[in-house]
Nucleic acid binder design. Sequence first.
DNA 1: CTCAGCAATATTTTCGAAATTGTTGATGTG
DNA 2: CACATCAACAATTTCGAAAATATTGCTGAG
Lengths: 232, 232
Amino acid sequence: MEQVRQKGETRASDVLQRLRDDILSCELEPGSKLKFEALRERYEVSFSTLREALARLAAESLVTSEGQRGFVVAPVSIEDLQDLTNARVLLERENLRLSMEKGDDAWEAHILATYHRMDRLQNRLGDHYYFDPEWAQLHSGFHHSLVCASGSPVLLEMREKLFERAHRYRRMSSQFRTQWRPKEIEHKAIMDAVLDREPVALDLIEQHIRETTDNVITFAGHLFRGPQGEAV
Amino acid sequence: MEQVRQKGETRASDVLQRLRDDILSCELEPGSKLKFEALRERYEVSFSTLREALARLAAESLVTSEGQRGFVVAPVSIEDLQDLTNARVLLERENLRLSMEKGDDAWEAHILATYHRMDRLQNRLGDHYYFDPEWAQLHSGFHHSLVCASGSPVLLEMREKLFERAHRYRRMSSQFRTQWRPKEIEHKAIMDAVLDREPVALDLIEQHIRETTDNVITFAGHLFRGPQGEAV
DNA sequence: CTCAGCAATATTTTCGAAATTGTTGATGTG
DNA sequence: CACATCAACAATTTCGAAAATATTGCTGAG
């Protein structure tokens, strides 16, 4: 009747995306219980449709499902953050290495294009660009463009999933960050090194990833409570 | 009424496991369409329950779901095999490296125990151990024991998923293999190197993985048809 | 003969009620 | 008072019919 859904897009996949967004933006608190009745009302879908979306998110490790006790938003913890970071470094380096080896002119052009768009929006938004959802999209796109020529669908998909999983921690980092300048310079430096096929690019991207993690642990580490701890 | 299901185990998770097994054992042919009506009869569950299981498998890349056109068993292809192999090598090496660095006495004991069980069953079964489901289980357990001390849940989970995804190709390899001896010796050599913390273990495990892949490409490569090709 | 348009059929997707299972709290016993 | 038992309740899980969508096959115009 009032369906404004893309063709070939199912209602379940729509709810899946909305749920994902709400979890990543922490609108649904980490560690909190996901009750069907409440979600059903929130997203205006039936039990089964919700169930499918939650099952998918469970396979993505964004929610956990234990037996017959329903679903829970995946908790955040220092252990998880550190583990995630190490895994991301491994996959980011490998994808970038392959990408720099195989990337062609079109790939280079794509990087320049995505950087430009991110940079422009950054300037327009001023100091608090980090909280803008559209910027987050462009930022994600820029990092993707760097590695997308690796030619390995499997490695790229894993990288993408980990990048998403890290979003909640990036979000926390930005809340505790005091100096904003470095990130902007870093992106430019990384891009230049990548386009010049300089091996140091691998170390720069690793540093780029680890910096956010260190920032969270330094400023927000004490807020976590144990391995199964929840965010405040 | 006649439920013989484990406690905390849902009907959907039961179907999920059975579907997974049937896909990995190629009882459900790669690339074939999964029709709800047929599956509903096969597993004796309802639409919704099936749907959840399929959604989970889709997130695991064991089935693909395109828009509103249902589900398909993930196809097999040389490109996928090679990609999968490279990804597995990356993750197996990293997990093994960490495991050898951090593993304690209990870990070593666990390796010896799982190897022993696999070896015994191997001798009991004779030349065709590779087709036995129980042996496959023990084989999987042995390889898991080598890396399980890495201390990284994220890396281990990804490794596990890839190991599973590779199962159909291992299966194909065993059908085309003529000489069976090497694998048995390899496992012993790998275990010894790992227990002695010799860095060469990383190369041995990589070779072990790549061997199966090379075998499939040499003997079965011509059976694939293009990038979206299906098995015969 | 080719192909667009449309009707008939097959398949998937969604829904909410019903069944199952887990949880809570009151009651009684050791 | 501690603890097991059980009933009442709350939440999840399952079901199959109904709606929505895709696919197939037919008809007729160009």
